[in-house]
């Protein structure tokens, strides 16, 4: 089986030849591409970015590619100032929020993600990889959800208070952002993404109550996910919060898979997670990026791989990965070791 077949089999809740493995190696590929993190993240050199992903795959031999650049891609295109450190993850400049007060939500304009900016970079990166390895590897597009984007443009603290103090202004802005995200997600599907992953970070106990998340992002994520399915791709989600609302995710997004680092809010162990949610959606996860993928010794990584495969792999529905982006400053050797250990311990006996 190739990587794509392996991933597709897991998503159908069946056992492939072995457990598919795809640590979320995104920013770290800049080192293989031979360009600085800043140049990579600014997105002006799509060719190098595509080649970086391809060469990384030659090194670590994973089964799929994730098209995340960083979470500020969409906010930046909507007008938020983004800071690009030379060797660090880009981030919004919260000293200069695009949305300085609740009255500014109406400043947000519909933009064309296919025309320019870093959303176009992501679309082009999907297209470039699809052309080269679309028949052999899973290509996962990436969209940050509407309230995540708005929190970056307003500053998270202000935004969370606005949800309760200025709900109408926020809801009106979400409508505008949604229109753009729908087109953005469709464009990635059309460019060859097999699945488009929507990050609904705030759908967890870490941040919002269930009713508040549902009010602001439920209908929004449904529109985006319906558009992804309409464009012929599968829907997946990413959430690295704690106590994820899987019931809300199912209700509003109905994904084939969730990439996650922690358990659902209604279970207490990974075994329970498998029993309760494992037949409904594939888990992509859940190796801790810091303690294991970055700081783990080879033995610790191997033990973790064995434990995760032991808990989740039976019957398919599991793709071994990091629970969030593979640390961009972490040795790629660790990513390779994760893949090697999955090959060693993840073989399904027929």
């Amino acid at each position: 089986m190739n990587g794509l077949e392996r991933v597709a089999t897991a998503l159908q809740m069946k056992e492939a030849d072995r457990v598919p493995v795809a640590p979320l190696v995104c920013g770290a590929t800049h080192r293989v591409a031979g360009i600085s993190y800043e140049e990579w993240a600014r997105g002006g050199n799509v060719e190098a970015m595509v080649q970086g992903h391809l060469d990384t795959a030659k090194l670590i031999d994973h089964d799929g590619f994730c098209m995340l650049i960083d979470l500020s891609v969409e906010a930046g295109d909507f007008g938020m100032e983004v800071i690009y450190p030379l060797n660090d993850t880009p981030h919004p400049n919260y000293d200069n929020n695009f949305l300085k007060g609740p009255e500014d939500y109406k400043k947000i304009q519909r933009i064309n993600p296919r025309k320019g900016g870093r959303m176009k970079t992501v679309i082009d990166m999907v297209g470039g990889l699809s052309k080269q390895v679309g028949g052999t590897h899973a290509i996962v597009g990436f969209v940050y959800g509407s309230i995540g984007i708005l929190s970056m443009m307003r500053g998270p603290e202000n935004f969370f208070m606005d949800l309760m103090e200025y709900p109408d202004e926020v809801l009106a802005a979400i409508e505008v952002v949604d229109d753009v995200l729908i087109d953005y997600a469709k464009a990635q599907a059309e460019a060859g993404a097999h699945t488009v992953c929507v990050d609904h970070l705030y759908c967890s106990q870490s941040i919002l109550s269930k009713p508040l998340w549902e009010k602001f992002e439920g209908p929004s994520i449904k529109k985006i996910c319906d558009a992804i399915r309409g464009a012929g791709a599968l829907v997946s989600l990413h959430n690295c919060g704690n106590g994820i609302y899987f019931d809300m995710s199912e209700k509003w997004a109905n994904p084939v898979a969730i990439s996650h680092a922690y358990l659902a809010d209604d279970v207490t162990t990974w075994e329970e997670q498998k029993t309760k949610w494992g037949s409904k959606m594939t888990t992509i996860g859940w190796m801790a990026p810091g303690p294991v993928a970055m700081l783990g010794t080879p033995d610790e990584i191997e033990e973790e791989v064995k434990a995760e495969i032991g808990a989740m792999a039976k019957g398919g529905g599991f793709i071994l990965s990091t629970g969030c982006e593979f640390p961009p400053n972490s040795p790629l050797w660790n990513a390779k070791h994760i893949v090697d250990c999955a090959k060693k311990h993840g073989v399904y006996s027929k």
């Binding site: 603290e157 969370f160 208070m161 870490s206 109550s209 508040l212």
Partner: peptide, 14 residues
């Protein structure tokens, strides 16, 4: 106890 989340807590702090 997950009765309050981040927005509620921020407003309490305000």
């Amino acid at each position: 106890t997950h009765e309050y989340f981040v927005p509620e807590t921020l407003l309490c702090a305000k």
